[in-house]
């Protein structure tokens, strides 16, 4: 599946998008299997853009194409579209309404008219995928669960529709670190299983370690679309948008002041661990090769290439 946005203009004021546009001439596409971070300051148009992907808002100018079909053309099956593209809104747990977790997750699949055994299969799988044991949680009242658990129930409700694309709006808001980790694991699995993810988030550390491509919106316009490394290297742009470097990357940069041989960018603690372990490994190799004195950081490039051979 491919989603293409073609020169979209949208204004909440009405039909003249030039007046206070929320989106201005927005164009980019999302290809199958991508993990895209959609970032930008508050009010930059991220959520408005998300609502365009399944025809919940219609652009006043421009087109949204899914597999080449204009989603706002007459006769397009929006139900089918919304099944394929799952939107997870901000604080989705506020939309839980059934008396049990099982019923809440079953609501969507049942509405698709699936046979009961298929519904049961999907509910079970969806709960397992978001890390909730169906036996333990199925019969519970969602309103008596913790914030993090309710968020996962809501996510399971979308997952049970078996979407090809997941679009999540600030999914980490209000989650504790453990909740963020579980969400991250889920998204990684969804992605490695062939799913496409669009992640809207202010949590730049989370975006940086998850997304390989960044689309940045500022005042309703796309101001950046490209690989993550290039985005986080563009300090001027980040400053203009009022965004800060991811905290871990900022820390890494302070280390690089003294150790310029370190790779320029890291985004996760696993990467930090790996880079440091490689350095340790190299040092040991060098020591075994008979060089007793530890090399100083400055002489690294030559020494490194020699040991690499």
């Amino acid at each position: 599946m491919i989603i293409e946005l073609e020169r979209i203009w949208f204004s909440y004021d009405g039909l003249l998008p030039e007046q206070r546009p929320a989106l201005r001439e927005v164009s980019f596409s999302i290809r199958r299997g991508e993990f895209v971070g959609l970032v930008g300051p508050s009010g930059s148009g991220k959520t408005t853009l998300m609502l365009h992907l399944t025809g919940l808002l219609k652009p006043q100018r421009g087109k949204v194409l899914v597999d080449g079909v204009d989603v706002n053309a007459p006769g397009v099956d929006l139900v089918c579209l919304r099944r394929r593209i799952g939107l997870v809104f901000q604080f989705p747990e506020t939309q839980l309404f059934e008396e049990t977790v099982w019923e809440d997750v079953a609501f969507g699949p049942r509405n698709l008219g699936l046979p009961p055994e298929e519904v049961a299969k999907r509910v079970r799988q969806a709960l397992e995928r978001v890390g909730l044991d169906p036996e333990r949680f199925g019969a519970r009242n969602p309103h008596q669960l913790s914030e993090g658990e309710r968020r996962r129930v809501a996510l399971a409700g979308v997952v049970a529709m078996e979407p090809e694309v997941l679009v999540l709006d600030e999914p980490t808001a209000g989650l504790d670190p453990q909740g963020v980790r579980l969400l991250e694991q889920f998204l990684r699995k969804f992605h490695s299983g062939g799913g496409t993810v669009v992640l809207i988030s202010h949590h730049l550390d989370f975006v940086a370690r998850s997304c390989s491509r960044i689309v940045a919106l500022h005042r309703g316009q796309v101001v950046f679309d490209g690989p993550r490394d290039a985005f986080f290297a563009d300090e001027t742009l980040l400053r203009e948008m009022g965004l800060r470097l991811p905290r871990l990357l900022h820390w890494w940069c302070t280390k690089r002041l003294r150790h310029p041989q370190l790779p320029p960018q890291v985004y996760s603690l696993e990467e930090v661990r790996r880079v440091l372990a490689e350095i340790g490994h190299r040092d040991r190799q060098r020591a075994e090769a008979g060089r007793s004195a530890l090399p100083l950081p400055g002489d690294a490039p030559e020494a490194q290439s020699r040991t690499a051979e």
Binding site: P177, L248, L276
Partner: peptide, 20 residues
């Protein structure tokens, strides 16, 4: 969970670069 810099710093403290 302390802020991520502190987690990273604790990894750093055990690394050969910190030893240097």
């Amino acid at each position: 969970e302390p802020p991520v810099e502190y987690l990273a710093e604790s990894l750093w403290a055990k690394s050969p670069l910190a030893e240097r």
